[in-house]
Design a protein around this nucleic acid. Sequence first.
DNA 1: CGGTTCTTTGACGAGATTCAATGCCGGTGG
DNA 2: CCACCGGCATTGAATCTCGTCAAAGAACCG
Lengths: 241, 241
Amino acid sequence: MDVVINKLDRLHVLDPDDRAAIRALPYSVSRVKAQQRIVGTGDIPSTCPILLDGFAFRSNLVTNGNRQIFSFHVPGDLLGIQQLSLLHADHSIHTLTDGEIATVPLSDLRAMLKQRPAVAEAIRRDVLIEASIFREWILNIGRRDGATRVAHMLCEFVTRRVASGSGRLERFEVPMSQEQIADATGLTGVHVNRMLKKLGDMKLIRRINRHYEISNWSAMQRFAGFDPLYLHLGIRNGPVA
Amino acid sequence: MDVVINKLDRLHVLDPDDRAAIRALPYSVSRVKAQQRIVGTGDIPSTCPILLDGFAFRSNLVTNGNRQIFSFHVPGDLLGIQQLSLLHADHSIHTLTDGEIATVPLSDLRAMLKQRPAVAEAIRRDVLIEASIFREWILNIGRRDGATRVAHMLCEFVTRRVASGSGRLERFEVPMSQEQIADATGLTGVHVNRMLKKLGDMKLIRRINRHYEISNWSAMQRFAGFDPLYLHLGIRNGPVA
DNA sequence: CGGTTCTTTGACGAGATTCAATGCCGGTGG
DNA sequence: CCACCGGCATTGAATCTCGTCAAAGAACCG
């Protein structure tokens, strides 16, 4: 669970007892293949899945069968934290790549959070930051054109990876297919492909398969209208809980 | 603050001491006119605005000057609850209509929540439900066409009003202009107007100025693909905190 | 009643989707 | 080791939804 401790410690400083309490949580670990459902819309889970390795995403379907992706997740993310206070899941969670999931009973999680206010505060911040990212996605899909939208998504993804200490700005790998980028940006796979080509023609990115390079970060950021304020990266010593 | 108590009591049952603690909060009330900024992006507020009367919305601008609205708010909503755990505001809050705002110091709010776990739980649910609504908006804007999008927004708005005990399904008034509906749905004002006309032609709504009638709710719901699951309306006796 | 804001409508253009075909890459089994 | 296969990526052409520009009409407010 060290990956979880690292994540939460970036949100609120944890003392040794906090870390020990997280390590003491009962959980089972399972390997999962790509594109597996972890939680389905309408489920009433009694456990909280935690992503230990690989990538995952939240999504839902509309009546005509189209899919919308709401967020991408990286190791350390608490995927089912909503169920601490809500009864049923209002969306689905799937793995994007092969990965590893820890499963923790919600009751044990609740008990631990009562004992460890700093961990509870870290999780509150996590939930609020995720909501902030949802708002940014609403803005991205609602008010930016295709090229800018895809660029913004790439900026966010790489920034979050760098902030979590895995990956560099100039050179990174994107785990999702163009179809999945489309489902996240409200476009079609075909159009995402064209927009990636356009970003390449504009020298904002270089790309071989799913390996991306951004040589001129400030130009990319400017083009995408990307301002990382909404990610609240420097929150660690934030407001007093 | 009774409007706040009513709201929170729908999210988690409050006992008389909980209610008294909310009433005992120190706050000042001010009348505000429509289109006034309550919180601006980047602000570091030390108080939490609470909407007592009228309507409000969250929004942000993109570089080209376009605006995206993230949510609409009704009396009883805690507008600055993010600032309990986040330092700066990542979006703006404006009044939609003339209204009344209560201002509560965050420190007093924090102290009260420590004493009153049931209130804290109600607020946790509120935050998670708002995040769920953000996800639904992502899906709405990303994967539904103009007519369905506007219809879904209307379904959500009226459903929330009915759930809060103010207004009826068949006949209601919408406080926002078509331009504001456009900013919320990722369309233009002109196109919203055409889509409203289309919904009228399809007999799904009847409309005189901002007064709407939905005579056939199930047809409207079906057309909009509206499933209120994501609003978690029946949460009051939800999972144990 | 006059000004302002909001709504409505038309004509035109741009951006995104759809359909369809081809090419590329990695994996699997003979 | 190589041929085959399936999923992804790429590209073109036609179509359609939605945006833009512009103008007129309706509702609202002082």
